[in-house]
């Protein structure tokens, strides 16, 4: 009983991290019509930058949440630069843009290896969240509960931004009909930068806050990117609700798969993706960005 409960909590926690990772991936896909293959790198770079801010390598020690926020802002700036300096020059050439994101992801992996070395870096759980919540004899790690809460708060904040602000309406208009959005005067290329920076920042934030759970290691980027891809294909591109539901589903499949069928974990993970692509290519929530 406790085993199942813990597996469930772990699945939801992982789903929350996946949501922070894939919400931006999905928005970028919806608006710019490209899978951003640096999204896993942004997750990993955020994690590495966070570890430095936490005092591992740079000599000073910041509070965990302050470090996480700074790392997120740094990755957001990197994302904005990448959109402005590289992707914008290739506006309208989607294949070239995808290849640029692929190239940058390999370059980022090498730079991280050079900067932080090849050994995994473990991230200490923030001391105030190191305990457990005890319910009926089962002990739930406090930090994982906090991650779930953070994911829910971000989901609500993103939803409010998309649904209740003029900026959000412009983003949705750009997802609906990018050409018409430009004709009515919306600067869609500015939206690209904003959404790219936002997505990068969220991924970087997810990277560092996943540190105490996953630790940080070379190859983390290539472990996370396919998961974001599965989430977005299940949920449908450009759909916030889709990312949310898709993340929870993948969180469960991934954790239960690893616990019950460890040798088939990837088979179990990618089977639903292949089925959705073949049977319902717009995704479970495709077409709406809600």
């Amino acid at each position: 009983m406790t085993f199942w409960l813990l597996l469930t909590v772990n699945s939801i926690t992982f789903g929350g991290l996946l949501f922070l990772l894939s919400a931006g991936f999905s928005l970028i896909f919806g608006l710019m019509r490209i899978p951003n293959l640096t999204h896993g790198s942004m997750f990993m770079v955020g994690a590495y930058l966070g570890t430095s801010l936490l005092g591992g390598t740079s000599g000073f020690t910041l509070n965990f949440w302050v470090a996480a926020l700074i790392a997120a802002v740094e990755v957001a700036i990197l994302g904005a630069l990448m959109e402005r300096l590289l992707l914008r020059r290739l506006a309208g050439q989607q294949l070239a843009q995808v290849l640029v994101t692929l190239g940058v992801s390999f370059m980022a992996a090498d730079l991280c290896l050079m900067g932080w070395g090849g050994d995994p870096i473990s991230v200490a759980t923030p001391p105030h969240l190191a305990g457990f919540v005890r319910v009926d004899g089962a002990a739930f790690p406090l930090y994982r509960m906090a991650v779930i809460l953070i994911a829910v708060v971000f989901a609500v904040a993103l939803w409010l931004m998309l649904e209740r602000t003029r900026l959000g309406a412009m983003i949705r208009a750009g997802v609906d009909d990018p050409q018409m959005a430009r004709v009515v005067g919306i600067r869609v290329s500015q939206l690209f930068t904003i959404v790219f920076a936002l997505g990068a920042g969220l991924a970087g934030f997810a990277g560092i806050i996943s540190g105490p759970i996953l630790s940080v290691y070379p190859g983390l980027d290539q472990d996370m990117l396919p998961l974001a891809l599965v989430v977005v294909i299940l949920g449908g591109t450009g759909s916030l609700l889709g990312s949310f539901v898709g993340s929870i589903i993948v969180g469960f499949i991934y954790n239960f798969g690893q616990a019950l069928l460890p040798e088939l974990a990837y088979f179990v993970l990618f089977l639903p993706m292949v089925l959705v692509l073949v049977l319902r290519p717009q995704g479970l929530f495709g077409g709406q960005i809600l």
Binding site: R166, R172, A173, D176, D177, M180, A181, V183, G185
Partner: peptide, 29 residues
């Protein structure tokens, strides 16, 4: 977007309203 800023607006063939925006949001954007 620059042509729009010079004061040219289009009611396109097939209407092409933003379907996932509310009526009011279509106007506001």
């Amino acid at each position: 977007e620059s042509v729009a800023a010079r004061g040219v607006a289009l009611v396109p063939q097939g209407r092409r309203i933003f379907k996932s925006l509310t009526v009011r949001e279509n106007l506001m954007v």
